[in-house]
Design a protein around this nucleic acid. Sequence first.
DNA 1: ACTTCTACCTGAGCGC
DNA 2: TGCGCTCAGGTAGAAG
Length: 273
Amino acid sequence: MPELPEVEQVRISLLPHIVGKTIEKVRVDLPKMILHPDPDAFARRLQGARFTGVRRRGKYLGLELEGGDWLLVHLRMTGALLALPKDQQEPPYTRMAFFLSGRENLYFTDIRTFGVAALVGEDGWRDKGYESLGPEPLEPALTAEYLRARAKGKTTVVKGFILDQSVIAGLGNIYADEALFAAGIRPTRRVNRLTRKEWEALTLGVRAVIHQGLEHHGTTFRNYQDADGKMGDNSRYLQVYHRKGLPCRRCGTLLKQIKVAGRGSVYCPHCQK
DNA sequence: ACTTCTACCTGAGCGC
DNA sequence: TGCGCTCAGGTAGAAG
């Protein structure tokens, strides 16, 4: 569920709860979510470790540990990291619990169980998805020229292209639709048919919608919440996502929803060409 | 190599 | 109320 702005909000809200805290014990309830090492070694190696920071890359979180190891986390569709007082009941759908020094514990909850975690350290293990991430939307490396070059020789639809995490890190279905609306480009357009001008508009659109999402602490529709259980308020500012059949905020035309690259996609038939 | 489809899960919302 | 169906903010791997 969470895309870049939501994951960034999780990162920020997590910091005061875990930095400086020691992991006294780890309980893994859903072994398949641990990518590396095996769940027993995972829990054992984390025991006694201390959190020193939290970083984000695309939709991945890196929970940094003293000594250089770090915990790679991807929330996928419905994952959440929640910090709660020890005397409070564990949240529903808890898949993993970190019992910390101090007054709180950290819970990895996940309804659909797609979320994953891994311990990354000296043993050289790498996560493929993480390693192949493209540039961050707000970094200077994301330019129209870069996108055009990456699209060279491809014929795929632009919606699928910008959802590809190796092209741009962090866009998901919401912000992809929003970026395409901002750029005036239909999600079904083929990347080999986009003009330079459109690549420019798309680059600006991606930056703008991600920036806006960050400002509003992310978008919440159903499951997403930050480490304090708070919701983002960006949904109020969305132009197309979840607005099928409603009038375009720019021109009044009724917004359409179609399936593109396997994902529900909303667009304005008048504003997007 | 590229593109599209399917699977992985659970729950919410819809029509009947 | 309840059943069956579709859809959901993601991505890896298979199939074409």
